[in-house]
Design a protein around this nucleic acid. Sequence first.
RNA 1: GGGCGACUAGCUCAGCUGGUUAGAGCGCUCGCCUCACACGCGAGAGGUCAAAGGUUCAAGUCCUUUGUCGCCCACCA
Length: 902
Amino acid sequence: MAREIAKAYDPQQIEPRWAEYWVKEELFKADPAAQTGGKVFSIVIPPPNVTGSLHIGHMLEHTEIDVLTRWHRMRGYNTLYLPGTDHAGISTQRVVVRQLADQGVDYHRLGREEFLKHAWRWKEENGGMITAQMRQIGESCDWSREKFTLSREMSRVVREAFVRLYEEGFIYRDKRMVNWCPVCLTVLSDLEVKHEERQGHLWHIKYPIAATKEFLVVATTRPETMLGDTAVAVHPADERYKHLIGKKVALPLTTREIPVIADEMVDREFGTGAVKITPAHDPNDFEVGRRHGLAEIDVMTDDGRMNAAAGAYAGMDRFAARKKIVEDLQAQGLLEKVSDHTLSISLCERSKTIVEPRASTQWFCKMKPLAEPAIAAVERGDIQIIPENRREEYFNWMRNIRDWTLSRQLWWGHQIPAWHCANCKEITVAREAPQKCAKCGSAKLIQDQDVLDTWFSSGLWPFSTLGWPDKTADLKTYYPTSLLITGYDILFFWVARMIMLGMHFTGEVPFRVVYLHSLVRTASGEKMSKSKGTGLDPVALNQQYGTDAMRFCLASMAAPGTDIVLSDDRLLGARSFANKIWNAARFLFMNLDKFEEGGTRLEELASPESRAKAPYATASGVPLIDEWLFARLAVTIESVNAALENYRFHEAAQNVYQFFWGDFCDWYIEWVKPELLSAERGRAVVAWKNLFAAFDAALRLLHPFMPFLTEELWHQLPQRAGAKSIALAEFPEARAEWKKSAALEQFALIQELVGSVRIIRAEMKLDPKKRVAAEFSVPDAAARKFIETNRDGVLRLALLSELKLSPERQPQAGGAVRSTAQFDVRIEYQEIIDAGAEVARIRKEIERINKDIASKERQLGDETFRSRAPEKIIRGMEITLAERRVELEKLAERLGQLEKSA
RNA sequence: GGGCGACUAGCUCAGCUGGUUAGAGCGCUCGCCUCACACGCGAGAGGUCAAAGGUUCAAGUCCUUUGUCGCCCACCA
């Protein structure tokens, strides 16, 4: 029965149906009992960045993940998603903090419990939204697992990991220089600090030398920190200052006197060669201070204002204080000069405020010993990093790794499992809250208020989600996982730490392959970001183009190594492709009744046994066109598989596109149309069977890329009883009996035949409806034979009224002629063609061929080339050369005729 | 200061381990509303592969230098 489907593909009508269906039917639920012959594909999924909604970057990532997962699933793997961890903890907090601020609530005063209530509520609401959006874009993963993240179970895992690392001596507590954000009121890891070049000043300040009228001039970019100076350092070998070492200088604006010390770290060339030392506010100075036993005077408050130690400046904002101090110094004549200076400032990645280096007591993790095995694993190839060039980046960072600042002064996150004794200050690190202090027995224990960097728990994800520290069946089956896909921007934040922690705790790598995808950028090349307002909204694009189009577009642009700039053009192209598929299906559906009248049940054809029978033969064998199409299909399947195996999504997409549009639609459907409607029943049925088989295979081939569209069409086609989803159908196999290279060559010649007539028609500006007679001269007898068998198709596609075949080289003049090495075609037509243009064209062509011939003759005549080049290249070149010569000869002949008749 | 990447048709980009006439999509030109599709069909124009050297029988592809743009890392006051 003929089926009506809409005239154009409307994603808004189709797509919403399926996302929920997939999840409801639990199509993507891992099945450890599945008989997969040990074929397991487990994939670690990065978290959606829960700052409100998805952005287009997620689309790329999840398209890649989903393509690979569906592809594996269709090929009989037991597949498992490990949904990404909540690294969004901090961004969640940021959003909630902002919202609270809008309501006039101070986050820091709120307290942990109260704040978490707000944060959880927000996360419930928005987490649900994210899940819905993920569904909408075709992600079939069950995001409810994400709730695991901050659950009690996860806390247990995090504590376990923390305590173990502590007991093994990796985690320690220390006072040292850290990056402090005065707005977020927390310490930041090095990775959370961004650097920026800014135009600043270098203030030269005169420090009076005690008991003299002299001054020692120091240069600084941050005058406000001078209030915390506890020394001035010079280079020990600096002749200018040697005599001052050990002397004292008066610290201006204060009553303190500070020593002049000698330290190698001073660069004699920079500034004045004398450096003020502020151990509490500068990393270098901190080191120097420790070496020389200097006091560490912190002159600032947590929120970046001057504290009591700053004397008269107490209470002022650090930048206001800077201004005032400079003014005061000037007033006292202690400011020698101010010069311009370009400096690199440190900014908090989130609040964009200038980070204040501060000495502070924090929790740290020793990284060197964790990094070593992680480096070795990548060196050995136990973990493969793709693309290759990121390996170096990984090594570079890992070899220069520094200890990791674990603690954060936030309410949101996993609280550090350490308890401080109110009595004796002893710290107890434990899995569960201890009853009393191990040292003094006091019961007055207070848990450390700090939380762990979210990347700590994220780093445990590949095994914590599988049940670690217990030895679970999941862990055994799915760990090490097969693959991690993520953006290269979190290689260090997340990937490196998962490798280090994974190897440390499980003794095995957490994943075999790390595929680092590109970042999607805006037209102006910026990284897409919500906060900058440069992100494309996937939901809006969804409305505009459809998810399948978006997915296909992203996949086709996902060449590894370079970033992606998304454009409307590409999206439109992908939408057109979706529409093309839809319409090809529409063509099938409109004529289904004719097929079914033939007595074959379509649903029978959809069985694997029937699929093996394609292509079907008529009484006279399998038609060339069908052999050709299935040969092309086999080639396409093979290249798609190869491409996906190597994460070359763009190649896979391109191959599918080319096959479906170029081969299936443009040639196959056009060619078999009349056969489908043929009065000859048997022939029509065979044509339909093959068309159906090919289309069915093409749909399955396309499914990983365009899940919605293919699911819809697959359901529209009759399927066997109990068939649930195309996602569970087999991915097409490149069957050995499909690979007919002869058919590929033969049909290629026919395509050329048709093409050459079309060229002539276009050049002569023939009325498209006007059929003309063509004369082909084909010296090769075998070729003449298969052209003869396929005469009808050529007649139709080339719009010919008549087709003459001769074995002779075409001698006659007149009409329009086109030649290749294999054949000539001549079209007789009374209207005179533009002889001048034709002559010009031929001359140009001759020139090109001449060049080519000359270059090949030169190479083939070269003994070194002949002795060194592979046989295949030489043979190929000889054949091509022979063909070129024939072409040249024909062109010259034709040119002669034209010139004679002119 | 280190490290990495990009530079190929008007535009956006492919081109994996060097190998016969460098590709695609969009745009443009010409002709078509041909009963699946104008989100379409057929044809065409358009490139000294950023520059200069080098290695090689052979270079868009490997090496060196230069230029332009971008990114990442780095505690120089």
